[in-house]
Design a binder for these strands. Structure first.
Length: 287
DNA sequence: CTGGGGACGGGGCCC
DNA sequence: CGGGCCCCGTCCCCA
């Protein structure tokens, strides 16, 4: 599992300096803090068809140049900047400046999603660039009969109204919605999942003792136990206690005669899959 | 080198 | 829909 969002990134120091984190997030303490979802947090990446894994299969060659994807796709670029809106107004977040997060939550949220809906896509385009001009279903010179192609399912319709009706009522792909994270490339089918994921970027839960930031309250609670020394998870087989349930679970493996993870070659068992992996990487003598 | 503990992460599930 | 919790997992450190 990638740990790119881990706060702890200084491998050489056991006690990382969280001063920088504190300055950015201390005004958004967990528990009272509401997720600071801004426009830019939940606005979709403006993917051209070729950017979507699903759409990629059906992507048609729109153009040989990068202009085939006229919409901005960089997560660092305000998706609305090209619409004439103030880029700053839509891209600021607690991570990017030191404004109290609470002030950001007052922003009237406009949740959009990546969808195949023609009207929504069109609304994201500059008024000067009609959608059909960007994605002609009939390449110039290839046919005399003009048609309108659904970009999502490749079905061709004879009229614009037919295309609109198709997308509204019949196109299976057009009803699929995607919520994209502006900080990374991840996509989610629900807004709730995306909001939770965004917390791994914004890290709204801040330890008041050391300033370290976490994505979720219970992670902070677990961290606070490292300060207080509280160990609520006790082993039933010995006197040991743990601050973390996962660590108790791992500890319970040490009491087990047969460990959970077994080498298929020598049948030696290990309490952790990482130990089994090490055993196999080092070269099992019987393998 | 191995095994175990500590700290922490993300996704999913339930309420 | 959001919060809390659980599960599974990783990485680091140390004996």
């Amino acid at each position: 599992m990638p740990r790119s969002f881990l706060v702890k990134k200084q491998h050489s120091t056991k006690k990382p300096n969280y001063g920088g984190l504190k300055s950015e997030t201390e005004e958004a303490p967990c528990g009272t803090h509401e997720d600071s979802l801004l426009y830019s947090d939940v606005l979709p990446h403006h993917r051209c068809p070729a950017q979507s894994p699903r759409l990629q299969q059906r992507a048609q060659p729109l153009s040989s140049s990068s202009s085939s994807c006229p919409l901005p796709s960089s997560p660092n670029t305000s998706p609305l900047s090209f619409l004439g809106h103030s880029s700053e107004a839509y891209s600021r977040s607690p991570v990017e400046d030191n404004k109290p997060a609470e002030s950001c939550t007052k922003v009237n949220l406009e949740i959009q999603c990546v969808t195949g809906d023609l009207r929504q896509r069109e609304s994201l385009l500059p008024p000067s660039l009609p959608l059909l001009a960007l994605f002609p279903a009939t390449p110039p010179g290839s046919s005399s009969q003009e048609s309108f192609e659904c970009l999502d399912c490749r079905k061709e319709l004879l009229s614009f109204s037919g295309l609109a009706k198709h997308k509204q009522l019949r196109c299976e792909w057009s009803s699929k919605k995607y919520f994209s994270c502006k900080y990374c490339e991840k996509e989610y089918v629900s807004l709730g999942a995306l909001k939770m994921h965004i917390r791994t970027h914004t890290l709204p839960c801040v330890c008041k003792l050391c300033g370290k930031a976490f994505s979720r309250p219970w992670l902070l609670q677990g961290h606070i136990r490292t300060h207080t020394g509280e160990k609520p998870f006790s082993c039933l087989h010995c006197s040991r206690a743990f601050a973390d349930r996962s660590n108790l679970r791992a500890h319970l493996q040490t009491h087990s005669e047969v460990k959970k993870y077994q080498c298929a070659s020598c049948f030696k068992t290990f309490s952790r899959i990482s130990l089994l992996a090490k055993h196999q990487e080092a070269g099992c003598p019987l393998s």
